[in-house]
């Protein structure tokens, strides 16, 4: 009886996907909290955004880890999807997937691709200009600029619509993904039902909260 290295096994990949997903959920929570302050308090939002954008620990330690986490989650997602498709070389003439599983659980790759595409736009809108501002053009620190940059982006109805559309797919991705991650890491005990309710609540509150923030700034500024 020989044992193959853990990292090559299907379960290890599944657990790695779950852990990277939970890591991204943590980041998403922080991002959501900071963005939400933009609705209530311009100064608080600027303070928090300035801290996140200029704290050396966040910029040079957390940010690279976050980018690696995003890359790992998406690359592993594609790798697993490719392998899973190869596990059934000849498909069914009739396959009634809706009879036994939700759309969101069966189409994580589609919702994932939409979110990935959105991230490209989001980076183009905010992250790349921020990197250019700070590290290429080396402009002076202006802690009050973040709120105006945010509001300016949501002037466009097309961009706002794309953001809302993407957040809806983020909801679909989280609706299955968040709770699925608990199952993947083997969590199944008396707390599971409560945890699943929290997972579903998070999957609704955060994406629809982002939609609210985008629409709020579009219609109020």
């Amino acid at each position: 009886m020989s044992n193959s290295p853990i990292l090559k096994s299907s379960i290890a990949k599944k657990i790695a996907m779950a852990l990277s997903g939970l890591f991204l959920v943590t980041f998403l929570s922080i991002h959501f909290f900071i963005n939400l302050t933009s609705v209530f308090n311009e100064d608080l939002f600027n303070t928090l955004a300035h801290f996140m954008g200029n704290n050396p620990l966040i910029q040079f330690a957390m940010q690279p880890v976050l980018i690696l986490g995003v890359l790992f989650h998406f690359i592993m997602g594609f790798v697993l999807d490719f392998k899973n498709r190869a596990s059934r070389p000849i498909g069914y003439a009739k396959y009634n997937g809706a009879a036994n599983a939700s759309w969101s659980s069966r189409n994580m790759i589609i919702s994932g691709i939409v979110v990935l595409s959105f991230l490209g736009l989001h980076f183009y809108d905010f992250w790349i200009p921020e990197m250019v501002y700070k590290y290429v053009e080396v402009k002076p620190i202006a802690s009050e600029r973040y709120f105006h940059e945010l509001v300016a982006k949501f002037n466009s109805p097309i961009r706002t619509s794309i953001y809302c559309f993407s957040f809806f797919f983020l909801f679909l991705h989280l609706w299955h993904g968040f709770n699925s991650s608990f199952q993947s890491v083997g969590m199944n005990n008396k707390y599971s039902k409560t945890l699943h309710k929290v997972g579903y609540a998070f999957a609704v509150i955060v994406p629809f909260g982002f939609i609210f923030i985008a629409l709020f700034h579009h219609f109020n500024h």
Binding site: S4, S9, S10, I11, S87, R88, N100, S105, R106, H176
Partner: peptide, 25 residues
């Protein structure tokens, strides 16, 4: 568990994505 999972992987089955379809069917 180690040997059965290793053999399962060697046989070419896909990975679980927790859709729950198996439990229903």
């Amino acid at each position: 568990v180690l040997n059965m999972v290793n053999q399962m992987d060697a046989e070419g089955f896909g990975n679980c994505t927790n859709t729950g379809a198996c439990e229903v069917e």
